[in-house]
Design a binder for these strands. Structure first.
Length: 386
DNA sequence: ATTGCTGAAAGG
């Protein structure tokens, strides 16, 4: 089986997402297992009661059915007249299905959409996602912060099941660090929201409160800045949204709203695939011996089920890039209604229920930092002197 | 994108 691997498995750190390398044979096995599994799994299963949000259920149900029928149609495409009608719908397909099928929506997808829907749209339709100096500096600082408390270990990853197992393992190890040392950083999360979407994200930092009476972990995010001032309100609002998404995901997990079946189904993972030797070894070393991804998911569920909800207070820290000095902190309370509204607004865009909005008039200064200024009609109205 | 972009966040 390993003979057909054209490249040797890459080594990656235990706290990073590794490359997926799957051989043809492995893929065939996975596909076979999945199609067998699919026949026993209904198109949509939900651990939530959806009646409160009928619109979302419809969209999600439609997506699941579409992907299922898409497979079927493929088989009969050669002999049938379905091909043309199949192709037509492509551009009209919601972004969530077009670009985030089998991937889930990330928290940065949400915040990116909140920043400017038109920019988000352009990124996907026109490509090129550029990183600038400020982003590089920010990444470097975050890497430093993580390295303060994490020792990275190389782990060999051969399949997407391995990659997911590693992510879940990192969650488990991170949570243990949080419980025993009171602090952890870059904690990966995957969860299912009440809106019926799978979401992924990485929490920058989590602190355990010092007092006994206060037992809810506090979610923290450090933002590094080029200028030595606190950002304007729209940017702070964006940061708050990011943290609120994490708390939302965290609390949903803790409440047990995670269906393993749906997880395997949505991300098309084979629960019974035996994980790479390296991963099995690593998990055994960490004290959580597992054989398969299914075992790993069980551990993931056990781990978050023991956790208390996140603290109602969330913390945004702003650091000056030049000297890492603290510019200020923005502590604020989780606002469920606000979050739900913003999330719904973003989802309208992702589900293709409406056109992408341009950023409001008073926030057109954002256009100055956008790589699509030259082709965006909204940018014409932004004041270059501000 | 006719499976991408190893991946979520990085700053504005």
């Amino acid at each position: 089986m390993s003979g057909s691997l054209s490249e040797s498995p890459l080594n990656k750190s235990v706290r990073e997402i590794p490359i997926e390398i799957v051989s043809e044979e492995e893929m065939a096995l996975i596909e076979a297992a999945l199609s067998a599994a699919r026949s026993s799994i209904p198109a949509i299963l939900s651990p939530f009661e959806f009646h409160r949000n009928a619109r979302s259920i419809q969209s999600i149900t439609a997506l699941s059915k579409r992907s299922l029928s898409g497979r079927t149609v493929l088989d009969i495409e050669d002999s049938g007249d379905f091909a043309s009608t199949q192709k037509k719908g492509k551009e009209a397909e919601p972004f969530l299905h077009r670009f985030r099928r089998k991937k889930g929506l990330s928290v940065t997808d949400i915040t990116g959409t909140e920043w400017c829907e038109k920019q988000m749209e352009s990124i996907h339709l026109r490509g090129k996602r550029k990183t600038n100096k400020a982003m590089e500096a920010g990444s470097a600082r975050h890497k430093k912060l993580e390295e303060e408390i994490v020792r990275k270990v190389q782990v060999c990853v051969k399949s997407k099941e391995d990659a997911w197992a590693l992510k879940l393992l990192n969650f488990i190890v991170g949570v243990n660090q949080l419980l025993f040392e009171g602090l952890t950083r870059e904690l990966p999360l995957v969860g299912f929201t009440e809106e019926g979407i799978w979401m992924v994200g990485v929490i920058d930092e989590i602190r355990m409160p010092a007092t006994e009476t206060d037992r809810n972990p506090m979610l923290v995010d450090t933002k590094t800045r080029v200028r030595d001032t606190l950002p304007a309100e729209p940017q702070r609002r964006n940061g708050r949204l990011q943290l609120m998404c994490y708390k939302y995901m965290w609390d949903n997990l803790v409440a047990g709203h995670f269906s393993s079946k749906q997880f395997f189904y949505f991300f098309t993972l084979n629960p019974h695939s035996v994980l790479s030797e390296d991963i099995r070894e690593r998990t055994a070393d960490s004290g959580f011996p597992v054989e398969t991804l299914d075992d790993m998911v069980r551990l993931y569920r056990n781990t978050f089920s023991m956790l208390p909800p996140a603290h109602d207070q969330l913390l945004l820290r702003y650091e000056f890039q030049k000297d890492n000095s603290l510019l200020g902190e923005d502590q604020f309370a989780f606002d469920s209604d606000l979050l739900k509204n913003q999330l719904q607004g973003c989802l309208e865009f992702w589900l293709g229920e409406r056109e992408a909005c341009y950023t409001p008039e008073e926030e057109r200064w954002k256009c100055r930092f956008c790589q699509f200024v030259s082709i965006c009609p909204a940018a014409a109205t932004s004041d270059p002197d501000i």
